[in-house]
Simulated assay, not measured.
Amino acid sequence: MSLDTIPVDLRRLRACLACSLIKSFEQFLRDGCDNCEEFLRMRKDSDNVYLYTSKSFTGMAAMMQPSESWVGKWLRIGVCCPGMYALSVAGSLPREKMRQMRRLGLFCGNRDRSQ
């Protein structure tokens, strides 16, 4: 596991709207999302970081061994990379991105549990 995925500071944290991975704004800008970069292309694109992440999320769960993690199964992220994940993320991806993800067979559920 790369420690670059783990947030090093609690300021400016954001959660990916697709997979709920938590990183700082700078980490998303520098590295993109470790799970969704191929699809969301956040690396070096601050507009996409703002569009596909949310600063409003609740709870954090660490997932270190995805294939053996009950947390991964519970959050439906068992195939994602190790890291810190939000339990709930306010907001959603644009509808067209959600349609594209469904066509590709990628999980695209609403991670907003605030209601």
Rank of each mutant, 00 (worst) to 15 (best):
R102E: 08
K97W: 07
E68A: 09
N48L: 03
I6F: 13
F28R: 04
S92K: 12
E38T: 12
T58F: 09
I77E: 08
Y52Q: 04
L13W: 03
G83Y: 03
C19L: 13
L106Y: 10
S24H: 01
T58G: 10
R12N: 15
L13K: 13
L3V: 03
L104F: 07
P7G: 14
K44D: 15
W74S: 12
S20R: 10
Y85Q: 06
A62H: 03
L29W: 10
R111I: 07
P94V: 06
D47E: 15
R111V: 06
S114V: 01
L13I: 11
S92N: 09
L17M: 01
C16H: 01
L106I: 07
L3F: 05
A15P: 08
S92L: 05
V89L: 05
A61G: 11
C108T: 06
M60K: 15
L17G: 01
R12K: 11
G109F: 02
K44F: 03
G105P: 13
R41S: 13
M84L: 15
T58L: 11
L104V: 02
I22L: 06
E38P: 07
I6K: 09
G32L: 05
R43Q: 15
G83I: 00
Q100K: 12
K55M: 12
W74Q: 13
L3H: 09
R99Q: 08
D45K: 13
R111Y: 12
E37Y: 04
K55P: 15
R113M: 12
C16N: 05
W74F: 08
S88H: 04
S46N: 04
I22S: 04
C33H: 00
E96M: 06
S2P: 10
G32F: 02
P82V: 00
R102V: 01
A61H: 11
S114I: 00
E96I: 10
D112Y: 04
P94E: 04
S92T: 12
D45S: 14
R30H: 09
S114K: 09
N110Y: 04
G59K: 04
L10N: 15
F57V: 01
C33I: 00
F39E: 14
C33M: 00
E96V: 11
R43T: 14
S46L: 03
E26I: 02
S56P: 04
D31H: 13
G91M: 01
C81K: 10
C33W: 02
F28S: 06
A86F: 03
L10M: 11
C36T: 02
C16Q: 02
C80T: 01
S88Y: 02
L3Q: 11
C108Q: 05
Y50T: 14
D34Q: 05
L3R: 09
L104N: 08
Y85F: 08
A90F: 09
M101K: 13
S69N: 05
F25E: 13
